[in-house]
Design a protein around this nucleic acid. Structure first.
Lengths: 174, 174
DNA sequence: GTCTATATTCCGATAGAC
DNA sequence: GTCTATCGGAATATAGAC
């Protein structure tokens, strides 16, 4: 609270005046900021379009969200691993993206022979991983690659197209 | 400190007797536990084998490490995003895996026409993402997929082979 | 080495003046 | 609304007996 007050150029007492206590501050500031993105991401997953389009939409939604708000992936993944049920309830309000529906769509394409055989849940994990992970991995990547923020940001921009391309290259039938 | 003492069946004073203070305890216990894996992962990345073999080795090293120590990815990624330089120094001691060397190997295969054109750093990000991210995403995945720990663990076992397969399917030339 | 008791520090929260 | 001053509790850390 002291650090926040310093940063804001006010004092602790005023923080309590505005937010009553530390937990309410946390929820109003962080959770509200993060909850904004939920409908966008949920919508990308639940849109009624064909699979390749959907892969593009999901990757674009997740990666651009993370580019514009790089703190969100780190924040969500840190918090959700502290108290999974509680955080998910607060964050999604029991209204998570419909992953099973997406899995069913993948399953259908596989059974129709339109894409290579793959476990739908593995494909979903692969897609989510490639969209979100780099933003959490960023510090290690930059130091390990002897890169810098500008290089990293450029790579992330490229990923909006590169990730769906990579996925589709892997699952498409020649 | 009280909780740790309870868990250990001793009292707080003894914890301080052994570790002097909370920070030293943290470093000795957590950092030491995590540092164990560093040479294994580094070695997988730096082995002198052909690219497809190396992809298999890296994925196997990272995923099996995470299966056996699921707390490690969450811990490392949380800490590294708090104080990147400090944590990386403590964790890797200025001796990170040689990612640039791996990038050079990928670059070479691309230029030889052995694999599809791809930005080496993107491929590395994709691989690291698919290996590590699911372990951080686990709580959301389980609830969102209406799955459970057993299903999740089974999926992770399958990923040891499924992830390299997915990558190679994407980059290989028909 | 292990304990009890206690000191010390830190931080969230409140009281009350302005 | 904003501040200073302070309370109260919790957590870290130490003293000292055994």
């Amino acid at each position: 609270m002291q650090e926040i007050a310093n940063e804001a150029g006010i004092n602790k007492a005023l923080l309590h005046y505005y937010f009553r206590n530390k937990n309410l501050l946390f929820e109003e500031v962080f959770l509200d900021a993060v909850k904004k993105f939920h409908p966008i991401l949920k919508n990308a997953i639940e849109q009624e379009v064909d699979l390749y389009q959907k892969i593009h939409q999901i990757c674009e939604a997740y990666i651009t969200m993370a580019i514009d708000n790089p703190f969100v992936p780190v924040f969500v993944l840190s918090e959700v691993n502290k108290q999974p049920e509680i955080f998910i309830q607060k964050m999604f309000g029991g209204d998570l993206p419909d992953f099973p529906k997406l899995a069913a769509q993948i399953e259908k394409e596989v059974s129709l022979g339109n894409i290579k055989p793959i476990h739908p849940q593995q494909l979903i994990l692969n897609m989510m991983s490639m969209c979100v992970f780099p933003f959490v991995f960023k510090p290690i990547f930059i130091i390990g690659m002897q890169a810098n923020k500008e290089v990293f940001n450029q790579l992330m921009l490229e990923r909006v197209k590169a990730v769906p391309q990579f996925i589709i290259d892997s699952i498409k039938i020649q």
